[in-house]
Nucleic acid binder design. Structure first.
Lengths: 211, 211
DNA sequence: GGGTCTCTGTACGATAGCGCACTGATACTA
DNA sequence: TAGTATCAGTGCGCTATCGTACAGAGACCC
């Protein structure tokens, strides 16, 4: 597998694929987060799923489809392995176990999408923020997340001021600390309690896909 | 293909598969609608996608996965063809064109999921109601839809009273008429104008998958 | 060291939809 | 025909979040 891959370092905001456009590469994150986003007229892109070292971008290639179902953007600084989308058929032939792995992962991402839809609709900003921070921490391998309130607001699909209010509460409770685009997680356990169950569900869902 | 299938008539509320449980059958709707739903603790099931004669239930079987990513429920009276999930491998072998068709459809349903997530989050109940009615009409082949406000509220993930208020507006404008669980579409064109763009996007998305 | 930009705190009226409860009307049932 | 259940209209206080705007504080640039 590794022989197909090259390591890359990518900056926040880099667009890795566009909805409806062909994939150029598939990406396997090592550190950092990729956002999958949906853009509706008149709104900022909304994050409908995110990808870290538990997953990959490009599993739809296993459907023998060259196009990306969603736009993918680097959300926090990303170290990843990538390989050319065109090599997918070759890779699948020479690595029989890859097919099943991609299929299971694609299935998990469908489950996740659905879960996320409900989460976004039913759960309050404060809980969704906590979930987002937990996922970001898992993927950054660090307590220090380079995320501004505005950035989080966009991915959550809410106003910046709504994020600020939720963040203030978390900070006042000693769960996080932040300043000018740097967020630190101080008390992970209580952050999990502040989050909706969707965080736990998400972790378990993707863990199952790796079996 | 037909040799694998048997026709069935199913009542509203019939559960066709449960999230995380094995598929027993795949379904090809002829008339009527299937809801794909996500259930979060403390909330009614939320419709995250729906299926009519343009599509099928069970495309995830093409991933060689036996389980359903979402729960599927009959939303309006359903005539469909179904075939045993276990026959999928055989069917795929004997019908080479089926594989590609299922793959394209699965891809389209991923695109749709993502679109729906944004729609549910950003668009008002009134527009989402219009979209739901348009889709239901397409699939029912009839202007007369057996849907109560409560039923619509549940699938949209809102209160019944919110649906009533939106429905009253549509009725007052002569776009629909309804009474006790029977809704008639009077002016489809204006209903489309009342809907968000997501309706049109959805139709086009699934149409592309059939090419 | 001064200017500029970015990030965060805050305020506040506006709005959509919640949550709930009550009512009358229609349809079904005995 | 009376009794019951379902469905839709309505009211109302409540809450989360919107939408917008302004100001202070830290970071960056020259």
């Amino acid at each position: 597998m590794k022989s197909y891959c090259e390591p890359v370092d990518l900056k926040v905001g880099t667009v890795l694929c566009q909805a409806g456009q062909p994939f150029r590469y598939a990406y396997f994150p090592i550190v950092g987060t990729i956002s999958l986003t949906e853009t509706l007229a008149g709104h900022e892109p909304l994050e409908t799923d995110s990808i870290g070292n538990e997953g990959m971008l490009g599993s739809a290639l296993v459907l023998n489809i060259k196009h990306a179902p969603q736009t993918a953007v680097v959300q926090t600084p990303l170290q990843a392995l990538r390989f050319r989308a065109k090599q997918m058929p070759t890779a699948l032939r020479s690595l029989p176990s890859l097919l099943g792995a991609l299929q299971r992962y694609l299935y998990a991402s469908m489950v996740e999408q659905s879960q996320t839809t409900g989460c976004i609709h039913f759960h309050e900003v404060a809980r969704r923020l906590a979930k987002a921070l937990l996922l970001a921490q898992d993927r950054a391998n660090s307590n220090h997340l380079p995320l501004t309130h505005q950035h989080l607001a966009d991915t959550l699909g809410v106003r910046r001021s709504a994020v600020t209010i939720a963040a203030i509460k978390l900070q006042r409770d000693g769960i996080i600390r932040y300043s000018r685009g740097k967020i630190s997680i101080l008390d992970r356990e209580r952050l999990e309690n502040s989050s909706c169950r969707c965080y736990q569900a998400s972790v378990e869902n993707y863990a199952k896909a790796l079996l």
